[in-house]
Amino acid sequence: MSTESTNERTSKPNAEAKAMQSDVPEQYRKNATPERGKAIIELSGVTKTFFRGKEPLTVLDGLSLSIEEGGFEALMGPSGSGKSTLLNLIAGLDRPTSGKAIIAGNDIGAMSDGELAKFRARHIGFIFQSYNLMPVLTARENVELPLLLTKLSSTERRKRAETALRVTGLENRMDHYPRQLSGGQEQRVAIARAIVHDPTILVCDEPTGDLDRKSADDILELLTKLNVDFKKTILMVTHDPAAADRATITRHLNKGRLE
């Protein structure tokens, strides 16, 4: 799928969603009709303290936050404001020092490492600033990775990976290695990997940070499509005001507190 066609398609979202969902497996549609108004991310009085030597460093300071299912929210703030730490907590990469973080019904603070890994595999789709693709795997193999944690057959995994790559417009690049792709294309592979297992929440850490304006706009268009047409809940940390504009809600974090 070319960039142009992405724009064209998203200009008529309903038709596109229908067309897209016709060849999207059942699993994709499962979370496609979120209950609006129901909080999928609920943080109350969350504190995160790191220790630098014996010196405690409070990065998140009694933070409370609620994000609705199907929302597209941007998180902005200066460096060191705690954006990444907050994103890590919501993605289940880390636990809060105190307070409660309930993500998709799971109490993050009470889970073991193993439980958190399972939680991430089931509920979280990651989109990183530097794409984080495995350089030795092809686009299709990269996208298949999260499915290796499911009980799907290899044929089914392959089919779903190809569908995800089609959704992100990379049907002609499936057997390419990351080094053979442009930055924008790499990020599309990463997005396909993030959605292939139909997670509850897409967590994006500066998704356009390494891209030129044109590629960045294409990626943002794709994220919008995933939110509007596929009803994905998206939480995006960004420095880019143009990216934040795409979100329905933008929150600002400063010194560990929401403004």
Partner: peptide, 14 residues
């Protein structure tokens, strides 16, 4: 280490 971290983030166990 970033690749390994990514695999862990995707849900692969220790």
């Amino acid at each position: 280490s970033r690749e390994i971290g990514t695999l862990r983030a995707l849900g692969f166990s220790k």
